[in-house]
Design a protein around this nucleic acid. Structure first.
Lengths: 358, 358
DNA sequence: AAGGGGCATGTTATCGTTAACCGTGAATCC
DNA sequence: GGATTCACGGTTAACGATAACATGCCCCTT
């Protein structure tokens, strides 16, 4: 066991002195690089163990110009999406000896800005960005990319820089799939809850909905397209959008037989409101969500939803990033768009009129 | 705008050459330390701007032995608790010029271990740990503390090291408060859902429950103390504990009039199960949760729960840490235990027999 | 006029590590 | 047997910044 009284942390020099060699030789032993005889290697190892040596990564990085570190910029930490993303990245980074340092933007442009700056100045080898687009954020990213920092962005930023790769899911196609699922069940009167002009991927889902409807020559009723009631609320309160959305729908004289919710939390809000109003799901109203959050399988009824391959996005982002980090040449820009997949549970059946034929 | 073709990042030396001074003078300008005439200061500033200079923090830190960086070790990122904690810490760290680098243990001892090592070797100035206790984790913490790394732990680790401070909430007292609230409403038959021997704070809440019951000379029925049904499940699935718990209770011939759930997610599971079984809340069954997650206000009925001052814990932890980081002497160990507060919403009223008297 | 103190810079050494190079001897080759 | 290779490990000079000290100058005191 290490003595509990060491003061200054041990350095290569200390070990060298004890082992009777030069610091360079110790370095070779520590890094398992270059030629060192068995004998001296063991002597050095022993000395290093005795002093509980841990390399000073600042010094090493200063010299090697590598920190073996990846910055990860996340928006909101209290978010299953984010967690899975981080998990996927780690699966790639860990075995290759990289550490992920996570910074949070907390959905604030200022915080995002300062986090980027901090990561950049601390010389991370690469950056994975999964926050929503902001103007200053984009500028910083371009600046850093110009200065040859490898960057991968996950999501919907429009960054046309030859060195900024991108990984995202095909939200448009996912939106189509969800809509077509409802149509294939016989629904023709379908509404959309949670349109928002701010959110890129949300917008794409909505576009997928519209295109699928048009494809099947189904009319889209404008009053069945519901946005947030008031000012947008952060985090979990998207539930409210769903809750209020359904309430507004019920006040109309004609209402849809199925709803496509922009995301699962919105769908959960709808379910809650439906229950409060005595509406049966899926009997009276079919619902599809988006994201497949862990909660989605636990609601009653369990939610039919569209699953993004989140972990996989994290893994791919990390892989692409490391490829760029470790390559000596400049690689061509990569853009990876991954397919979503429909997860059919119990919140969708055909409309009441067809259902009876079952 | 910066030229988009810079290759090597600018250094003090580059600026010095352009401004016609020595690097040391540039350093003084950048750090606003020491005497520099107005004239040269402006010359240097101009040169620095022209080159888009950003200091190399690795080099600076190597020399100053300060990274202006704090490591934050979190268990699970998809967790409102964690998010608020991080938010609180940032409120203190940011204005004082520190950056928080977050690492995740993902509830794995191995990951925790490697994260600690990475943070230590990258020479963070201090460490805030909010993961659950593990044996190797505790050993690492003691090792690092011995080597004079300031550490603050949030939660229930038993670390008796003179340099490891601690911030936590009084879960025992919170458990008392919740229980006494139910008792004061007239309940005498109260159950507890979600006991677990693994979770320190959960155990304290349970202990608070027991002590409050004893205090009021109320019997505790052993069969109303429910743990997880099967193997413990991570993350949001604690809902299941609640769901299954209530199901098991309903199979008994006599059931309690009120339940205290170890945490809000468990309480939500109970509410869901109650609704599925046609039980009215709070009429047939009163429920108290713990944590006051954002969702708790949005359930129907909104959940009565115990609120921990989470952000405040984050702030205090950061403050104590920085105090230690920036102090030249060794400070005495601090242990801060913060009070919880009961948030009364609509999931609790008196038992049915009393309720009619309203 | 000598001394002291604040201002404004430069010089030097160093933080801990590694890249690049060099020297020595022993083994291997044709 | 001379040239070539290889194993081993030392030397030197950075990486980019700053601490500590030194230097020179001007102004003010007494």
């Amino acid at each position: 066991m290490a003595a509990r009284t060491e003061n200054r942390r041990a350095t290569l020099r200390d070990i060298a002195r004890i082992a009777g060699v030069t610091p360079m030789t110790v370095s070779r032993v520590i890094n398992e690089a270059g030629y060192v005889s068995r004998e001296t290697r063991e002597k050095v190892r022993a000395a290093a163990d005795a002093l509980d040596y841990r390399p000073n990564l600042l010094a090493r990085s200063l010299r090697t110009r590598r920190t073996k570190t990846v910055g990860v910029l996340l928006a909101d930490i209290a978010n299953p999406f984010t967690a899975q993303l981080a998990h996927g990245m780690r699966q790639v980074l860990d075995p290759r000896g990289y550490t992920a340092f996570i910074c949070l933007s907390e959905n604030s442009a200022a915080h995002e800005q300062s986090s980027m700056k901090a990561l950049y100045q601390h010389r991370v080898d690469g950056l994975i960005v999964a926050t929503r687009a902001t103007l200053p954020g984009n500028e910083s990213l371009l600046f850093m990319a110009d200065h040859h920092l490898p960057i991968v962005q996950i999501g919907n930023r429009e960054l046309n820089h030859p060195h900024i790769d991108r990984v995202t899911a095909d939200h448009w196609k996912g939106g189509c799939q969800a809509t077509e699922h409802l149509i294939s069940l016989g629904h023709t009167e379908i509404g959309f809850v949670g349109v928002s002009l701010l959110n890129g991927s949300g917008l794409q889902r909505f576009q997928g909905f519209l295109d699928a409807m048009r494809q099947h020559s189904l009319p889209v009723r404008e009053e069945w397209i519901l946005g947030p009631g008031q000012d947008p609320v952060p985090g979990y309160s998207t539930q409210l959008v769903g809750y209020e959305g359904l309430s507004r729908l019920l006040a109309m004289k004609k209402r849809p037989t199925a709803l496509f919710a922009r995301n699962d939390m919105t769908a959960l809000g709808i379910i809650q409101a439906a229950r409060d109003r005595g509406l049966r799901i899926p009997g009276d109203l079919a619902i599809v969500g988006f994201d497949d959050v862990p909660l989605a399988a636990l609601t009653s009824p369990p939610l039919t939803t569209v699953q993004q391959p989140i972990e996989e996005q994290g893994r791919r982002a990390a892989e692409i990033l490391l490829a760029r980090v470790e390559s000596s040449e400049e690689l061509p820009r990569q853009e990876i768009v991954m397919d979503c997949s429909l997860v059919i549970r119990e919140s969708t059946v055909g409309p009441a009129i067809n259902q009876e034929s079952h």
